[in-house]
Amino acid sequence: MDQYMILKDYVSSADAETALFYVIAILAISLSVGVISDRNIIRSGFILIGVFGAISGLFLMLQAQFLALAQVMIYAVGITLVVVIALMLTNPRSEREAVITEGDEFSQETGAVQFIQRLQQGTPAFVAVFSFFTIYLAIRSESWTPVTEKVSTDNVKVLGEALTTVYSLPFEFASVLLLAALIGAIMLAKAEKRQPAIESAED
């Protein structure tokens, strides 16, 4: 293994890590903007998978291999399902009209009223920016003292042990939650027999 030490040192050096981080971060940010602004819902679903891929890259950089792989495994399939359902539910024509980044038409009012209307259409942006900024200020106002300890490469084992000993009760709860969600989803989505008309009206 020691023949890779030079390479490893280089890759894990601060500069390389920073550069890699910024590459992945820019990818993630631009793709997530793409998710919320793409006109086509199906395309934005596929872009979302890209976002999750970038995020799992971040997880790998944070040395959480298990989570990174679980992220890929769960979300690749899960979001594909979302995309499939979006495919089945959306009418391409009506979807094309619903562009989220453009506002509704303005009324003919002038002056202060129109300004307030503009502001009110900017509410989502305002809320988002405000929440980001609040969190950012909170992060900055704290002085973090990062631990210099290395993450153990075998942290899957640590995770597994913690899940089966200390956190076994939450684990069970999570599984009960999943089961409940499964049954609930099936019950909700199960087609009632008296409505065959909608299926045919879909196309």
């Binding site: 199906i42 596929f46 291999q65 792989l69 890929v72 690749a76 399939v77 499939v84 899957v156």
Partner: peptide, 29 residues
């Protein structure tokens, strides 16, 4: 080939194996 020896090898393989579905739906759509 030691460099490819991951501690979570089989999990990695399974994660990689779940990706082609995306491509198939993408190609189909």
């Amino acid at each position: 080939y030691q460099i490819t020896n991951l501690p979570t090898g089989i999990f990695y393989i399974l994660a990689a194996a779940s990706l082609p579905v995306v491509a198939l739906v993408m190609a189909g759509w």
